[in-house]
């Protein structure tokens, strides 16, 4: 099935999603890689400078440029998700985040957390950075840029029809990465 949907996702919608479904997503997402995950894990949710709830989480370290004081995404494909395996169940547990976008897949720990929290992991084609950047209509905010640097900072992005996102791990425990 192919879906053109907006964030935040309803729990009914997430339940309906099965591996191999293709999504084109509109709404707000935020980027986080290892350093941001580590920082988020070490902070109380109330101390975070932004509220991840309702947003999609994008494993991405974008290439950005500043033009006339505004950030623009130049290339923004996904980074390897497995580096976030040790953090993701905690993040899913603490926040109302029900869509993870990445590449390469995640492990059993995350799969269990997806099932528990009613969430899905969807894969964007790795290396397709320009294709992804074109779907970013606005760079809404950036956090921890000075401290973590461009790739590791948290970027809040508004996206329109970001896809193709292949549902690769669904909320029932199914995974396209199993058995390979």
């Amino acid at each position: 099935m192919e879906y053109h949907v907006s964030l935040p996702f309803s729990s009914e919608f997430v339940k309906k999603l099965k591996i191999n479904d293709v999504l084109y997503v509109t709404g707000k997402i935020f980027t986080a890689r290892d350093s941001a995950h580590q920082k988020i894990r070490g902070m109380k949710p109330v101390d975070l400078p932004f509220d991840p709830s309702g947003m999609g989480l994008y494993h991405c370290g974008p290439l950005m440029k500043k033009e006339n004081d505004r950030w623009i995404a130049v290339s923004a494909g996904p980074t390897t998700s497995s580096r976030m395996e040790e953090f993701e169940d905690i993040l899913l547990d603490r926040f109302d985040v029900h869509l993870i976008i990445g590449k390469g897949g995640m492990g059993q720990r995350t799969s269990t957390a997806l099932k528990k929290t009613g969430s899905v992991y969807a894969a964007f084609p790795g290396g397709a950075g320009v294709l992804a950047a074109e779907k970013i209509t606005k760079v809404a905010d950036v956090y921890w840029l000075e401290e973590l640097g461009m790739p590791e900072a948290v970027w809040v992005l508004e996206v329109t029809e970001l896809g193709p996102l292949v549902v690769a791990m669904d909320s029932t425990g199914q995974s396209l990465y199993k058995g390979i």
Partner: peptide
């Protein structure tokens, strides 16, 4: 990437 002369991958 070729047409826009943008790096094809953000990495």
């Amino acid at each position: 990437a070729k047409n826009k002369r943008c790096p094809m991958c953000q990495d």
